[in-house]
Every structure is written in structure tokens, then in C-alpha cells.
Design a protein around this nucleic acid. Sequence first.
DNA 1: ATTCTAACA
DNA 2: TGTTAGCA
Length: 125
Amino acid sequence: MRIGELARRTGVPHRMLRYYEEQGLIAPRRLDNGYREYDDHLVKRVQKIRGLLDSGIPTRIIGNILPCLGQEIVVTDPDPELRAMLLEQRTKMAERIAFLEANHDALTRYIAAMDGAGDAVNGPR
DNA sequence: ATTCTAACA
DNA sequence: TGTTAGCA
């Protein structure tokens, strides 16, 4: 498929798909006319990239761990620097999870308050 | 119509 | 990221 279809199927703007390519995250083949040709399996790959990006992980690190995603993680050369970066990213991720949970709880309480508010005056909805 | 590269905001 | 320009 070409970039337009991949963009539709992944929800990622074609502008970003070209950017991922610049960052070495995906490597589509080229047609004779120079158009990028993406294999079907790249759909999942792009979705994984998006997930990582949405988790706040920089493309530079994604490039290193992407090949392991969803597969048996077999590391032959344990890179201490990469390990340190992943440790840092995991910490940041934990912080964001905590932040989201706090807001999730806040919404839960607010919604509960909304559901109870009308009962006394206007009756249940 | 769709994609391509490059570049600017 | 969005958008624009000039091609193919």
C-alpha cells in the first residue's frame, strides 16, 4: 500500500509517516515512480510506534527496542546506556500513570457528585 | 487525484 | 505538525 492508505489505516498523518522514516523507524520500499510502498505488516509496526510515542518515549530510543516489540526479547549485547535510558523512561511512565490515576479518581468523584446532585431537588434522571 | 522533497512557521 | 511550492 502507499502512504495514503497506511495513513488511513493507522490514523497517523502521512506527514508523520515520512518523519518516522527519517528517524529510521520504518523502511518502506520504493516503487519505480519513487512512491513509498508499505507492506501490510508495517501497519502494526506503525501502531506500535505510535503507542511508544504516546507513552512519551523518544523516537531515538524506539529505534533501539522496536525490533523486540511483541517478540521474544532476546538481547545479545546488553547496552548499558540503553538500559539506563529505558530505566529513566520507565520512571517517567510511572509518574504519568500516577498522574492519570489521580485525574481518573478526580473524575470518578466529580461524576458521582453529578449523579447525586439532582436527587434532592429535581429527582433522579 | 496522489505522492515526492524541501523548507518555513 | 501543518502547510506550501513545484514536480512527476
